[in-house]
Design a protein around this nucleic acid. Structure first.
Lengths: 172, 172
DNA sequence: AACTAATAGTTAGCTTAGCTAAGTAAATAT
DNA sequence: ATATTTACTTAGCTAAGCTAACTATTAGTT
């Protein structure tokens, strides 16, 4: 009978996971169209945020923080650079690694873009009770903890050395 | 001074919105690679779910439920059809509208795919306390409510008539 | 009855963002 | 001195979003 109970629990976890999944999809779709004005899509916003709050950061660290493969970051940073939002220079100690940092323009745009993007959501949040908001905050933190740990499955040795350094993306 | 307080509050809402945004991005990125085996990406999973639990559904209703433009749904359904997961036939009453429903294969695959996709997350959830899980569930519901209402900005009159019919995507 | 409007979908074509595979260049190890 | 590993890039594919422009059906107006 303990077995039975465990099955019920895991079924509930599956359903909860499903709800969270669904909520996340809808949240992002809702927010997506808010960002076109600033030229900052969700991934760019997120990466830029890591760059700003994580200090000058390497490509590998960025990939790890964003949970994305190196080529994805490579292109993303190239684009941000073309927009004049970040700059990079090779690490003095190791010529292979690129250290990326944000420009003044990048910092300015992050705040504007972020605000624009999430402001609709923030408006909705304002209508909630402060207790509900506290719960949401707590939930967000829980989710980040559930999401980040134990690295990529098959991370092809990307950034082994630096991988334990975790950045908190898009916050600050 | 009340003004000041209101500013602080809105700043906090912005930050909370930001955290939720970030958590959603990371959650989805984490889960994305789980679904390749079944051939069901997040958008397909979500749409298929609406089709199954919303009954035979029109393209417009699907677009509204998924918060996406008609062409996006058009292609998505075409792909699902090619995979043999859904079928459609013109509405008898109105030859313009397409009624989409899931095949047996589609129903089977939804459950498998969903399970595969969220199982990693569910495993993480199992490590939480039941109180924390309850909070997460509540938060997911809050977010869905914040996300769904008041339709598209500029929805170009898509499905006006049916738009108030809301479907609960990816749950059930 | 015949136009005109509106509505439901589709097609074409663009963009972004993810991926793998394969390549370069620097650092490390044998 | 050479081979391996590491950090990143390039090339090229796919999925999924979008707008603009199209077809076909329905509804509305003289």
């Amino acid at each position: 009978m303990l077995e039975k109970l465990r099955q019920v629990e895991s079924q509930q976890n599956l359903e909860l996971a499903d709800r969270l999944h669904s909520a996340a999809i809808h949240l992002l779709r809702r927010l997506r169209r808010e960002d076109s004005a600033s030229g900052l899509s969700a991934p760019r916003l997120s990466a830029l945020s890591v760059i700003i709050f994580g200090g000058p950061v390497t490509m590998g660290e960025l990939a790890a923080a964003e949970q994305v493969r190196p080529p994805t970051i490579s292109r993303l940073v190239k684009d941000l650079e073309r927009q004049g939002l970040v700059s990079r220079k090779p690490d003095p100690g190791d010529e292979r690694v690129q250290r990326v940092s944000a420009t003044a323009k990048g910092k300015r745009l992050l705040n504007e873009g972020r605000r624009r993007r999430v402001s609709k959501l923030a408006t909705g949040l304002a209508r909630l009770s402060s207790k509900e908001r506290r719960q949401l905050l707590h939930s967000a933190e829980l989710l980040e903890r559930l999401t980040l740990p134990d690295g990529h499955p098959d991370s092809r040795k990307t950034g082994r050395k630096e991988q334990q350094q975790r950045h908190r993306a898009t916050e600050g």
